[in-house]
């Protein structure tokens, strides 16, 4: 259900988008699968916990999301990254390849806030690790969903100007170093969307996602090119390859 969401301009070119907690709720089936129960064969007690956790998401997710669009181009002589605004970002060749048709790039940040994390931590402390684990898993799914909702929104905004968007890519994936988070954050005002970066480039709140989306008349959302990548340690690729039809 793609729809244009309300957004406001925080400073020139930097937009904050209003995403409701209801937009990041996930279905029971998705949570069952993330916990390992792909065939829905799950103990009734765990089903009750899932219901309880999903009911809590609405009150505990304080979603905040935003983006900034800048001119961007892949430099022919420096294939391992792209120039965004006036900054060269070393995304690695995989992402640069996927963005080769981009004329602009949207840098984005989003978070579900600290509420779910705190709930999970409290449950562990109080001796209910199962519920704590379920809350943590649901929170991760909600954070990913927030990024997906923001991606769709940016797609619709761009479509209004006759432009298309690519997939979204994040530092830490496809050869783009996590350390580049600092460069990505430098495009935003301090503490934008309530997210800050620690010395070791960790986002706080933890349940946050950052990244970049290519924009252009000929940009396309396509399958991730995991089959062409040899990075064995990437768990996203492992999951992709396992689920890809043979």
């Amino acid at each position: 259900m793609e729809r244009l969401l309300p957004q406001s301009e925080r400073e020139e070119g930097v937009f904050e988008v209003t995403i409701d907690a209801a937009d990041v709720t996930i279905s029971k089936e998705v949570l069952y699968r993330a916990l390992g129960y792909s065939d829905n064969r799950i103990d009734p007690h765990f089903k009750d916990i899932v219901d309880h956790v999903l009911a809590g998401i609405h009150d505990l997710c304080a979603v905040r999301a935003g983006y900034r669009v800048l001119d961007a181009h892949v430099k022919a002589d420096r294939g391992e990254g792209l120039v965004v605004g006036r900054t060269f970002i070393t995304t690695g060749c995989t992402i640069a390849g996927q963005l080769k048709n981009a004329e602009k790039a949207a840098l984005f940040l989003c978070t579900i806030g600290p509420g779910m994390e705190a709930w999970s931590r409290r449950l562990f402390r109080e001796g209910d690790p199962v519920r704590g684990h379920f809350v943590d898993t649901a929170a991760s799914l909600a954070a990913e969903k927030a990024a997906a909702v923001l991606h769709d929104h940016i797609g619709l905004v761009m479509a209004g100007g006759g432009l298309k968007v690519t997939n979204r890519f994040s530092p830490g994936y496809c050869g783009w170093p996590v350390a580049d988070q600092r460069r990505l954050f430098s495009f935003f005002p301090e503490n934008f969307c309530g997210i800050s970066l620690t010395e070791s480039a960790l986002m706080v709140p933890v349940k946050s996602v950052s990244g970049m989306i290519g924009i252009g008349a000929h940009a396309m959302r396509e399958n991730y090119s995991c089959e062409r990548c040899s990075r064995k340690e990437c768990t996203a690729s492992r999951a992709y390859k396992n689920s890809a039809p043979t």
């Binding site: 999970s120 690790p129 684990h133 943590d136 620690t198 070791s200 960790l202 933890v206």
Partner: peptide, 11 residues
């Protein structure tokens, strides 16, 4: 130090 993830460690 510098990392705040506890779920994996807790498990």
């Amino acid at each position: 130090a510098g990392d705040l993830h506890d779920i994996g460690k807790n498990l």
